[in-house]
Write a protein that binds this DNA or RNA. Structure first.
Lengths: 218, 218
DNA sequence: GATCATTTGTGATAAAATGATCAAAAATAT
DNA sequence: ATATTTTTGATCATTTTATCACAAATGATC
């Protein structure tokens, strides 16, 4: 192998990617407020970040600003949406029709940010066939067909921790590539599958480290 | 000021703190499975982290393991719970009694991990007075009294983005020190207030960067 | 049109986090 | 008893991330 022939493609740090959606969220807010131009400094103040950080993050993808002026809000929104590939609507499936599943399936804020829950699954026969808004809850056995039909790459797991790993396996078998897991458990998945987690207790326990101890009991 | 007199207290990196709850979550799982001893390597494999990382993180707080053996699961759980101050139950208040608020208030998984939702608030008169499990929804005006009564330092915001900043202000005025915000917005708060955020769309948009584009429309 | 105040994008620098290595200790096998 | 294996905690090296600082560009002001 000739190392000279290996192309050095500029690998963008994941930590940079993880900040882009935050930038986009705030830029959309500014846009909705009618703000036409902003600066890395203003954005930084809104987000609690340094202006240099924001400029450097954006510089990985191109030059979006104008010296002396700043950034055109609508243009930068558009560019970030393209970079993140959310200039479209992605189909998402949801497993788990408990309270949390209901809350997620009923949430109207996904669509305009690039996502739509297209199907809900549960293994409880009492829940299957029930409706959440316009979506009918299906049995988990229907997952593969629905994933294929919608070419769905993203799934949400909103089942109890005890069932989460098995559900994850079924989703991966069906072809899902990314999972957002609300179950308080770390999933074991192949390296090509991306999992992100939402567990409020993790955040609480992070907070309490910095708080003065103030307990009810125990 | 004499700089020699300034004690160099070992400041523990926040990124280390943020991993401890993950360790604890998995250790509790092992404990529940009857596992008595584990190693940094086993834990690392379960969590997708290097063993060195786990050992170094723990070394900030003391020596919890035994060479050649590893870590006693129950003991390490106990120590982590002390470090994170979750060897007790913290009162938490919740603002927002929509679908999400319902899901959070009904969730039974908080208590054994150190947290209890003690009150729910909403500004919608149609929701005030209603019951979620054993908790009666109160008007937001009652926040200060309840915070004082329970010495509550932690709050959850589960209201629409448009109301979140105002709710945050009310919570901070009432004495809350840490906020878990489910509204898709970055809050502006004084430097002594800690805010953490949960927004599934941020995770989705992070995922799509790495996926092959596959859209429904737009 | 010259001057001044802003603001970007970036190379250089500093700081932080991670990973590799290893002696010492403990348990197990021989 | 001795050798072997395992595993920690510490140190050192490397990589990654964040910050600094400034030339160049832009628009506003005089």
């Amino acid at each position: 192998m000739n190392h000279l022939s290996t192309p050095v493609l500029p690998q963008i740090p994941d930590i940079v990617i993880s900040r882009l959606p935050i930038y986009l969220r705030t830029l959309r807010l500014l846009k909705d407020q009618g703000v036409e131009v902003t600066s890395s400094q203003e954005l930084g103040e809104l987000l609690g970040l340094s202006s240099a950080q924001i400029r450097k993050d954006l510089s990985h993808f191109g030059e979006f600003g104008k010296q002396g002026t700043g950034y055109n809000v609508a243009y930068l929104c558009n560019q970030l949406e393209k970079i993140l590939k959310v200039d479209c609507v992605w189909p998402v499936i949801l497993v788990g029709a408990g309270y949390l599943g209901h809350a997620l399936a009923s949430y109207t804020g996904f669509e305009h940010r690039g996502f739509r829950i297209v199907a809900v699954f549960d293994n409880d026969p009492k829940k299957v066939g029930g409706a959440i808004g316009s979506i009918i809850v299906q049995p988990v056995e229907a997952i593969p067909a629905v994933v294929r039909q919608h070419r769905c790459q993203i799934a949400i797991i909103a089942v109890p921790a005890s069932a989460a790993q098995q559900v994850a396996n079924q989703l991966i078998d069906a072809g899902v590539k990314s999972i957002l897991c609300y179950a308080p458990i770390t999933l074991t998945v192949p390296p090509n599958i991306r999992v992100e987690y939402i567990d409020p207790v993790i955040h609480f326990q992070h907070m309490t480290f910095y708080l003065e101890k103030g307990c009810i009991e125990e």
